[in-house]
Computed example of a mutant assay.
Amino acid sequence: MPLKIFLSDRLVDEADAKVSVFDHGLLYGDGVFEGIRVYGGKVFLHDEHIERLYESARAIRLVIPMEAAALKKAVEETVAANSLSDGYIRLVVTRGAGSLGLDIRKTSNPQVIIIADTITMYPPETYTNGMKLVTASTIRNHPGALSPRIKSLNYLNNIMARIEGTDAGMVEALMLNHKGEVAECTGDNIFIIKNGVLLTPPKDAGILEGITRNAVMRLAREAGYPVKEEPLTRHDLYVADECFLTGTAAEVVAVVSLDGRPIGTGKPGPITNDLLKRFQELTKKGGF
């Protein structure tokens, strides 16, 4: 059966889900988005994703043409229309159609697009054996340019770093910030564990404040693991006891090597596996 896509104000068949070639989302990456998970037919951490979407929109002076409650309802209706039990939602808001120029005053009719489908981020063996990373030479966006905390449609920065990773035979790549500190990976936040303490870069390191990142930090604290947000270097990752990534699509996945150096035992560690189990239990409950 063809997918049902929410476009602007109604559900349409995927073949009819079209936007103008003059839409600034297409022409300039001018818009915002969220990736959201569905577990057991329920939208996971829905409020947190909607709040971040509106924050990203406010940061780029984009007015979303729907109230938050109506947008949440549209997301849930799209999930139901596609009979989706476990899957992934891509919620997009574009600036709308405009002219062949940068002036946002010449745009109109912002587009709300909701796609609900299945997704496979990494092969199953990656979650069992862990993944290897390489450091990309492409750095994370300078916070004085486009803030990495805005989840915008312009993902070229991440894409160029991901190309470096795939060229090296990896499925992910580590990105540093303009100070040479660890920021995040191209699509995921990063954590290390050293002497039983979880460490992750702070928001001002040039990261997207991940919804899954925040959930895992909360789970870790509830389990009694100390959690600290502090600047990290590649050396910290090289000598860590464990390392893992978090993301809406990726969930929780261990990292066992960086730049050819094994991390810890070179296998997913016990705390990582414990947090993965706790996160999976959280998804079954539908949230906190």
Rank of each mutant, 00 (worst) to 15 (best):
M1P: 11
P2R: 09
F6I: 06
D9H: 13
L11E: 01
L11P: 00
V12I: 11
E14M: 11
D16Y: 03
S20E: 10
S20M: 08
D23F: 09
G25T: 02
L26C: 06
Y28I: 03
G29T: 08
V32S: 02
G41I: 12
G41F: 12
K42N: 04
K42R: 15
V43Q: 01
H46V: 04
D47V: 08
E48F: 11
E51T: 08
R58I: 02
R61N: 13
A68D: 10
K72S: 15
S83K: 14
L84S: 08
G87H: 08
Y88C: 00
L91M: 09
G96Y: 01
S99P: 02
G101L: 06
G101Q: 07
D103R: 11
R105G: 14
N109R: 06
Q111E: 11
I113Q: 03
I114V: 14
T120L: 12
P123E: 03
T126N: 13
Y127F: 07
Y127C: 00
Y127W: 02
T128Q: 13
G130M: 09
G130E: 03
M131C: 08
V134A: 13
S137P: 06
I139T: 14
R140L: 07
R140M: 14
H142G: 05
P143C: 11
P143G: 05
L146S: 10
Y155N: 07
L156A: 12
L156K: 01
N157T: 07
I159L: 15
G165C: 01
A168M: 12
G169R: 01
L176V: 07
H178L: 07
G180Q: 03
E184T: 02
C185L: 15
N189E: 05
F191D: 03
I192C: 02
K194G: 01
K194L: 05
V197K: 05
G210I: 04
T212D: 10
T212E: 08
R213Y: 01
R213V: 00
E222M: 10
G224S: 09
G224L: 04
P226M: 05
K228A: 14
E230D: 12
E230G: 04
P231G: 07
L232V: 10
L232A: 03
T233M: 11
H235N: 08
D236N: 15
D236W: 02
L237A: 12
Y238N: 01
Y238A: 05
E242T: 09
C243A: 15
F244L: 04
L245D: 00
T246K: 07
T246W: 08
V255S: 06
S257Y: 01
D259E: 03
R261T: 06
T265W: 02
K267M: 09
P270M: 06
I271E: 10
T272C: 13
D274Q: 12
R278Q: 08
F279I: 06
K284G: 09
F288R: 11
